[in-house]
Design a protein around this nucleic acid. Structure first.
Lengths: 171, 171
DNA sequence: CCCGGATTGTTAAAAGTTGTACAATGTAGC
DNA sequence: GCTACATTGTACAACTTTTAACAATCCGGG
């Protein structure tokens, strides 16, 4: 059901046979479970944001801005924080500005720059939506693990996140 | 850096304060680590498929088809297996057909239906790309866990995958 | 056989994303 | 203060995904 061929193909070229470090059965099922959960969870959370007229990306912007000092952030920083390209973020903010959720604001001291500012409506929207979203996250993910599993998985994932973040930085 | 507000907002309405099951600190950091790893890993694996002129979605199709009986699958089944909409899959297959990787084939016994067939080129491409992909998956993910962690995480994730799969089915 | 409803896959148009180039600044070294 | 170079955000064009509608086909009940 999931993807990413990582076990030996049904028929392997004898050449790659010798050298490719195919995943073991245990690794394989873990990898596929991870992929499947990621994808389906994304789908389900998006689904449950729809009634609020927000896509997951919109919500992410609202969260990051709401946690930022003065509820605003430079476009580039926001793009970095949300792992989007500057171009994509620019479009995204244009849409959210049209929806009244954020506002572009000149940046004193750097006339090249702009702030993306959370509006009152943006802030209120976030306050209204967040409780539902947490419930979704709990229902479909967090509450399905024991506290021990949660700690263990965090310990395991944190260095991987670190690694990937570093890779990304360099390009 | 990541997203999805799931902890209490800086200022909570007293109403939601009482009723919203905000994540604990431990839950929060786990949740954000999971999100971050998912997103960045996707990005990185996509990046490392680029030299082969394949997007992750293309690769996923190749994998699923290569594992299917006769290396072909009904469009609807393929859409389900890869968690895509029928429309999106249709476009995707059109592109891959243009690239010579797959071929649409009439479906004997159901004249509405079509098979998506892996071509020789598609199969060969898969054989060629898979080794590199496994190495990527190992380098950025699998090899960064101990065998014990892998088993534990699989045990934890499998029921969640099951849950989400069921949800998806009903819509 | 024939009807009504469900299923299959495609399509057109709208919406969103990506990559590249660009204009407007900023900044460091001379 | 100039020049060279880096940074900021946008704009355009190409591409991908979504949404909604549709034609063709199948299937079950009368």
């Amino acid at each position: 059901m999931e993807t990413n061929l990582t076990e030996a193909p049904a028929v392997s070229a004898s050449e790659s046979e010798a050298e490719t470090p195919w995943l073991t059965a245990a690794e394989q099922r873990f990898w596929r479970a991870h992929l499947e959960v990621s994808k389906l969870l994304d789908y389900q959370l998006g689904r449950e944001l729809q009634p609020h007229n927000l896509a997951i990306n919109d919500y992410e912007i609202l969260v990051v801005l709401s946690e930022a000092p003065d509820r605003r952030m430079r476009m580039t920083d926001l793009a970095t924080a949300t792992l989007q390209s500057k171009s994509r973020l620019s479009h995204q903010i244009t849409r959210m500005e049209a929806a009244g959720l954020v506002l572009r604001q000149e940046c004193p001291g750097d006339r090249r720059g702009l702030y993306a500012n959370l509006t009152e409506l943006g802030w209120d929207t976030m306050q209204k939506v967040a409780p539902d979203h947490v419930r979704s996250v709990r229902q479909h993910f967090v509450d399905r693990f024991t506290p021990e599993q949660i700690d263990a998985m965090y310990q395991a994932l944190a260095p991987v996140a670190e690694h990937l973040r570093n890779l990304r930085g360099r390009g």
